[in-house]
Amino acid sequence: MQRLQSYLDSHGIANWPHIKTHKIPAIAQMQIAAGAAGITCQKIGEVEIMAQAGLRNIFLPYNIIGEAKLNRLMELAQQIEISVTADSAFVVDGLAQAAQQHQVTMPVLVEFDTGLARCGVQTPQQAADLAYRIDRQSNLVFDGLMTYPLNERTDSFVQQTRAILEKDRVSVRRVSVGGTPQMWQAHEHPVVTEYRAGMYIYGDRYTLKSGAMKLEEVAFSVITTVVSRPTPDRGILDGGSKTFSSDLVGLDGYGLILEYPQARIYSFSEEHGHFDFSDCLEKPEIGERLTVIPNHCCSVTNLFNEIVAVRDGVVETIWPVAARGAVQ
């Protein structure tokens, strides 16, 4: 936590950590205490829970659509500082109407696509056109540009968009980018003003593969038990897809077993993890407890009610995952 905060501070980049990884208000408060400018949430349900816990500056980079969700968003805007994103006129017009009805002013960033092929406008001209549309609304404020992930296309897109907007004296105040794997390269992109990372708080097997974290820095693991050894080279863990999710994220197998790094978790049932240890010199026994670093910590967090915080083998606290399942 402190390492990323110090890095971003040293380069004048605001830290907006993504709480969808941990979903725990106490950790979000720790991130703010460490120096974060605010927090990032992915769904309104997460924002509501974090706001109830006292978080007061929240970024929600998502297209909010529909009367019910817009009403919830505007009620939050009357209580806390919140900004959102949009990538179409449909989203902007909905935000504008709701903001006017609730008599609030809503900062809106334009989301642009740098190649993920998810949400986001496709060209700088489209970004500028949407920024103009936001700027014309009496209850909206064009607040900048947002993308995920940070990559080699980011700077050029921002620079071209900014050049169009500057002709009409429309400024790009914020450039929000994200991605734990790319976080240590943020300073190489001069257009970036703020950074959103989520997985950095825990780390996982995907983060290890990216090189963003080392094994000794990973804080997130699942303790499992060998419940069966049907064959000499196959074992069954008491954790399956309902424990680890089914995320591969481009990796081979479903997790790293620290005690048997050559073993491979190759398949899941809902409550069973199937692992092969034919490449291991020593073989695990039934009843043995194994420590597994999952592929993707964000998905795993959302499957548990509690996270146990352990330091030097001693349980220091147990955090309820307050925003678990808050995806509405």
Rank of each mutant, 00 (worst) to 15 (best):
H18I: 12
D113Y: 03
N57W: 06
V108S: 03
Q100R: 11
V84Q: 04
I265W: 00
L73F: 05
G54Q: 08
C41F: 02
P181L: 05
A77H: 02
V292H: 01
M106V: 15
K242M: 11
E48M: 01
Q103S: 14
D252K: 13
K23H: 02
N57L: 04
L4V: 13
D168G: 01
W16Q: 07
D9K: 15
D113W: 00
A34L: 13
T85P: 04
V121A: 05
L215Q: 09
G144E: 11
M183S: 09
Q159S: 10
S10L: 08
M183R: 08
I318K: 14
Q29H: 15
I32H: 06
V47E: 01
A219C: 07
P149A: 07
R169M: 09
M213Q: 07
G179E: 07
D247T: 13
V175T: 11
Y260G: 02
L55A: 03
M146Q: 14
G38P: 08
M146I: 06
R118N: 06
D279W: 09
F304I: 08
Y132K: 11
P261I: 00
A197K: 05
G325I: 00
A127R: 04
F157P: 00
V218I: 14
G45L: 01
G287S: 09
S176G: 05
Q79K: 15
Y7A: 10
S278M: 03
V108K: 02
G35Q: 05
T161V: 08
L76Y: 04
K283S: 13
L303G: 01
V47C: 13
A34K: 02
P61W: 04
Q29P: 04
A322T: 12
H18Q: 09
R174C: 10
K283F: 07
Y62W: 12
I265P: 00
W319R: 02
D279Q: 14
D87T: 07
G273Y: 11
R72T: 10
V175P: 12
D87A: 07
R3H: 12
S245R: 02
E282V: 11
E316S: 05
A212S: 15
F268S: 03
S228K: 13
D135S: 15
Q159W: 06
E75G: 07
A34M: 05
Q126P: 07
P181T: 10
M183I: 12
D247A: 12
Q79E: 13
Q78D: 12
